[in-house]
Simulated assay, not measured.
Amino acid sequence: MITTGEIAARMSGERLPLLTLEEFFEGNAREDSLAPNRWGHGRPPLAEIAARLRALLVFSDVVWVRVELHPDTESGEPEGVVLGESIVICTTAPAADLEARLDAEGLRSDGIVESDESSLDDACGIPPVVGHERIVFLVWD
């Protein structure tokens, strides 16, 4: 898992970088680092969430998947806590298809929220969005 020091080095001003699935999930044993209000209330373990997200990448209508960091990520602390806010997906797939592929209900997610690149104004390290792809978010509120 990426460290807060590595996150701080990649920040652009106050803007937090989007993380790859590997950077956020590999070695992450802190179950409350993503959707903490759903952990212990039916949300599956991080390892299962990561596996479902990785499975999206085999579809030709999914270009990339990243983790958006929560503003409470302790980027100023060398051993701080890394917290995920939502999952960002660049895709041409309909939201309903993505929800079905991920079993968003089983993730105890609030589903896919349609958006655009302006929703990532507080992020940096955003991979390109080209062609007819759009940005959607898998969210937990």
Rank of each mutant, 00 (worst) to 15 (best):
R43T: 06
I135V: 15
R101N: 04
P45R: 04
H70Y: 13
L120K: 13
V58M: 06
H70F: 14
V67H: 09
F137L: 05
E68P: 00
L98S: 05
W140E: 10
M1T: 15
E48I: 11
I135T: 09
P127H: 00
D61K: 03
R30P: 00
R54M: 02
P94H: 10
S75V: 09
H70L: 03
G80E: 08
L107V: 07
P127I: 00
L83V: 14
F24V: 08
E77K: 09
L57A: 01
P36C: 07
W39D: 03
A47G: 08
P127V: 00
E48N: 01
A95V: 10
W39K: 09
H132N: 11
S60I: 13
A29D: 11
N28P: 12
S75F: 11
E105D: 12
L19W: 07
P128H: 12
E79N: 10
P71F: 13
A51E: 15
L69K: 03
R66F: 13
I2D: 05
L98E: 03
A50F: 13
R134F: 02
E31N: 03
G131I: 10
N37C: 00
V58I: 13
L53I: 07
E6F: 11
R66Q: 15
S12C: 11
M11K: 09
I49H: 01
I112S: 08
L34T: 05
D141P: 05
H41T: 12
R134I: 00
R52C: 00
L19G: 03
R10G: 02
P36D: 10
D72N: 14
D72C: 04
S60Y: 12
T91M: 03
E22N: 09
P71D: 07
I7M: 01
I126W: 11
L102W: 02
F25M: 02
D32P: 00
G106N: 05
D97G: 12
E114G: 06
M11W: 07
D121L: 07
S109P: 01
P17T: 10
A123T: 13
G80M: 08
R30S: 02
D103E: 12
A104M: 06
S115G: 15
R10M: 06
E114K: 05
P44T: 06
C124F: 11
A93G: 08
D61I: 09
M11L: 06
V130W: 10
L69H: 04
E68G: 13
V139Y: 03
H132W: 14
A50V: 09
P71L: 05
R10K: 13
I126S: 00
A50Q: 10
G27A: 08
L120S: 07
P36G: 05
A51T: 14
E23C: 03
E48L: 12
P17V: 07
L19N: 04
I135Q: 05
A35G: 13
R30N: 10
G5V: 15
E14N: 14
I87Q: 01
A8S: 14
D61M: 04
I87V: 14
S75G: 00
E31H: 10
T3M: 02
S60A: 15
A35Y: 08
D116V: 02
A35Q: 08
A96S: 15
